[in-house]
Design a binder for these strands. Structure first.
Length: 490
RNA sequence: GAGCCGCUAACUCAAUGGUAGAGUAUCUGCCUUUUAAGCAGAAAGCUACAGGUUCGAAUCCUGUGCGGCUCACCA
């Protein structure tokens, strides 16, 4: 800890003076009859003439002292309430105790009667008060709030104290997660939990974090997806399962990437990717309606309508429309690479054909997909866990969906042919050997599970943080994650 | 990983080579219905850190740290 500032020294001295009065500045219990909002509601119900006495608690957010009377605002979890202290109510000694030893940021409990001030604000006329917790560090500035983004992220509590809009964003986030759960629960999906520490990672194309178990002398990976475990549960006989939890990917940080992020995945036996598109539209529209009361939202200045139906176009067509490149016209990686370069794009020279197509989508198409859009039918090379189209073995029954220029999620008809799956893993192994660090590793136990037999199944995944960005109109993922990853300061 | 921008009092910001300032918060007075309360006064800084140039550096140069944006990376 750095040495205490003068302001902190002053507050510490006040805490000591309080102790010398025989008062604990951090008492263990408190009397509370109403939240601040309950007090306001009770007053409005009771009628102005009733003597309504309440005990309310909260953090001192502002103090206006005018000689022998003082107005202040306290904030609790429900909102704010004004309190009013008068020397002729409290006595000189007690009044001066407040004036001298209470600071902005302190938690205070007050008991008094409610009244309405001359300017109309419902206010507690304080009969007695007590210190609930002394604050030693000064609050951010009351008018401009806390703006420094680094401080806001590193000391999120200060951000939440100072910036009500930030507090609201995270309340909305919680409501979004609740609405997602309600949606799936009401359709018979079973919420489950699967391992975060995994001996083999998989289910996505990403580099993992590695950790070590001391007793087992074993390397473990933090999961990059839930996919392979959830499909094992479908093998086991559950027909509808989902999980909401944290994924970890060892890759760059950006406005839409945090190393740990919240994912929702569900698996649905006897359904296919067409059913998933229908359910996706319904889910997102339902969540928006429940959380925001509308399906029409504004994201970064764009008006977006989330109600079904959404646009559905093949990936091939989307790339063709945006770039003029029909990747089907280029049967090998060399010719496709040349086409991308002719368009003015940069691409990895040694990439496979599939690995050329995917960045083309990301770089040139994704940002244009403002209204909700499904892009469907992806190249098989970049989709090792998805089922091939019956009439076209070079493509799989897979879609990604985009809103506000953000990739929100990914889904497909699951590959349940264990022989085909093994073949795909072997191809991924070759890709890894050729330098693709994100190639999917072989998972023998997963193959064994498929050999037991998995019914036709559709699987789906979505970034909950990105959905929250969309529904709270935040441009950075750090503003929807309470404690986003930052580099350590020494 | 690269480029650009930023880091000044607890907070929000000024000061572009010549004595580091303001508002809020704090402290001291005055003030019993205020609400960004008001009035008067005071205190508060290793200008992120380390070097360099200069008679003189918050300011110019180099390096380091952290952050933001853009790019790269990234289902």
């Amino acid at each position: 800890m750095s040495p205490l500032s003068d302001l902190e020294q002053q507050r510490l001295a006040k805490a000591e003076r309080i102790r010398q009065r025989g008062i604990d500045p951090y008492p263990p219990r408190v009397k509370r009859t109403h939240t601040t909002q309950e007090a306001i509601v009770a007053f409005e119900k009771a009628g102005e003439d009733d003597e309504l006495t309440v005990s309310v608690v909260g953090r001192l957010m502002s103090v206006r002292t005018m000689g022998r009377s003082t107005f202040a605002h306290i904030a609790d979890g429900s909102g704010r309430l004004q309190i009013y202290l008068r020397q002729d109510d409290l006595g000189q000694e007690t009044y001066e105790f407040f004036d001298r030893d209470f600071d902005l940021g302190d938690f205070i409990g007050v008991t008094g009667t409610l009244f309405r001030t001359r300017t109309g604000e419902i206010t507690v006329r304080v009969q007695n008060f007590e210190m609930l917790a002394k604050s030693l560090h000064p609050l951010p500035e009351k008018w401009h709030g806390l703006k420094d983004v680094e401080t806001r992220y590193r000391h999120r509590y200060a951000d939440l104290i100072a910036n009500e809009d930030v507090r609201q964003v995270f309340i909305t986030r919680t409501r979004i997660v609740s609405a997602l759960r309600r949606f799936l629960d009401s359709r018979g999906f079973l919420e489950v939990e699967t391992p975060i520490l995994q001996p083999i990672y998989g289910g996505a194309a990403a580099r993992p974090f590695v950790t070590y178990h001391n007793q087992l002398h074993q390397n473990l990976f933090l999961r990059i997806s839930f996919e392979l475990y959830l499909k094992r549960l479908i093998v086991g006989g559950y027909e509808r399962v989902y999980e909401i939890g944290r994924d970890f990917r060892n890759e760059g940080v950006s406005y839409k990437h945090n190393p740990e992020f919240t994912q929702l995945e569900f698996y649905w036996a006897y359904a296919d990717y067409n059913d998933l598109m229908d359910l996706t539209e319904e889910m997102i529209a339902t969540v928006a309606q429940e959380v925001l009361g509308t399906t029409r939202i504004t994201y970064q200045g764009h008006e977006i309508e989330l109600a079904p139906p959404w646009r559905r176009i093949p990936l091939r067509q989307a790339i063709l429309e945006e770039t003029g490149i029909d990747y089907e016209a280029y049967p090998d990686a060399e010719s496709l690479l040349q086409a991308i370069r002719n368009y003015g794009g940069a691409a990895e020279p040694k990439a496979t054909r599939g690995k050329l197509i995917d960045p083309t989508l990301t770089n040139y198409v994704e940002a244009k997909l403002i209204q909700p859009t499904f892009l469907y039918d992806y190249p098989v090379e970049v989709s090792p866990l998805a089922k091939k189209k019956p009439d076209d073995p070079t493509h799989v029954e897979r879609f990604e969906f985009f809103i506000g220029g953000l990739e929100m999620g990914n889904a497909f008809t699951e590959l349940n042919d264990p022989v085909d799956q093994e073949q795909r893993f072997l191809e991924q192994r070759q890709a890894y050997a050729a330098g693709d660090e994100e190639a999917h590793p072989m998972d023998e136990d997963f193959l064994l599970a498929l050999r037991y037999g998995m019914p036709p199944t559709a699987g789906w995944g979505m970034g909950v943080d990105r959905l929250t960005m969309l529904l709270t109109d935040q441009s950075s993922i750090r503003d929807v994650i309470l404690f986003p990853h930052l580099r350590s300061k020494d």
